[in-house]
């Protein structure tokens, strides 16, 4: 007998039809991948990282392939929050999928202003990017200390009128401490991990492959680290955790649920397999059917560790 499967999750007031979200920075504003699959199939889309003013980003090369992954150093190239609201929200709203606006700032004031602007926009949640490793100011500078996270999230929370997700960097000594700071400051949820700071060198030229010298590592090679961090954070905070880092299919996603994630984000895998997002949703369903699980929420934190 085939049981009904419930994939719906609710993350701090953000209702998702399924727990698979396109990760920020890998999906643009959805236009490109809408030619490959129906965006209605996604739980949500975390859009390309936005800043107050348009940003050109870093010089190329911006990508290097590494074993089982990639390094990128895009540096938040984006049209700015106003152009996003004007040009991209109307496109995304044609689809029945949650719009998560990923926001970055150089200063605390900019984070606050971005949050005010986005709270008035037709979006479903804000993902505060305190973790981009490829820009000199803001972002990871705030996200790599509890004090920085407390300061930004406290002030942002005062003006936020949308569910507030704080995206964490793994480039810290103790991510649990950072996650707790986000929770204490009023974050409604945390998402982790952003990319790991890395580097690649071309021995023929003796030069770094990335023009920015360093970049953020993502892809299957980071999955064990991401899983460990999601597990540790989930054990220590009460707010929902959105897990990401190297997820390529439904089984990877289930691992993150078991470690404590309520939803997952998929990104880099889509560069290789443009159907990765949809196949992740299907894979979760398959696992649930095979294992007689009716509600995906049952999987969250279901790890047996005795």
């Amino acid at each position: 007998m085939k049981k009904n499967i419930n994939l719906e999750v609710n993350i701090a007031g953000l209702s998702l039809k399924n727990p698979v979200i396109a990760a920020s920075g890998t999906f643009g504003f959805g236009r490109e991948y809408s030619k490959f699959f129906d965006l209605n199939l996604l739980g949500g889309i975390s859009v390309k990282g936005l800043t107050l003013k348009p940003r050109k980003g870093n010089p190329p090369p911006r990508i290097a392939e590494t074993p089982g992954g990639i390094l990128n150093s895009v540096g938040l190239q984006n049209p700015g929050v106003h152009a996003f609201i004007e040009n991209e929200i109307p496109f995304l709203r044609q689809y029945n999928t949650a719009i998560i606006a990923n926001a970055s700032g150089n200063t605390v004031e900019e984070y606050v202003e971005m949050t005010e602007i986005l709270s008035d926009a037709d979006i479903d949640a804000i993902e505060l990017n305190l973790s981009c490793p490829n820009v000199k100011e803001g972002c990871m500078t705030f996200g790599s200390s509890s004090r920085g996270v407390l300061e930004v999230v406290n002030k942002v929370k005062k003006v936020a009128r949308k569910p507030l997700i704080v995206k964490l960097t793994p480039n810290v000594t103790d991510i649990v401490e950072i996650a707790k700071a986000a929770e204490d400051a009023g974050a409604d949820a945390v998402s982790l991990i952003n990319t790991l700071l890395g580097m690649a060198i071309d021995v023929k030229t003796r030069r770094p492959i990335l023009a920015n010298i360093t970049g953020g590592l993502s892809g299957p090679c980071v999955k064990p680290i991401a899983l460990r961090m999601v597990y540790q954070v989930s054990q220590s905070v009460k707010i929902p955790v959105i897990g990401m880092g190297g997820i390529s299919n439904g089984i990877d996603a289930v691992e993150f649920f078991l470690a404590g994630a309520s939803a997952v984000m998929v990104g880099t895998a889509g560069f290789v397999n443009p159907m990765a997002w949809v196949e992740t949703v299907e894979g979760i369903k398959e696992y649930m059917t095979e294992n007689g699980i009716e509600d995906v929420k049952e999987l969250t934190g279901g790890l047996i560790a005795d």
């Binding site: 490109e32 991948y33 980003g57 190329p60 911006r62 990508i63 990128n72 895009v74 190239q77 560069f271």
Partner: peptide
């Protein structure tokens, strides 16, 4: 240029 997605979403292969 070194490319990522190849379809315009990831913004790595710029000039």
């Amino acid at each position: 240029q070194r490319m990522g997605c190849g379809i315009g979403a990831c913004l790595v292969c710029v000039c």
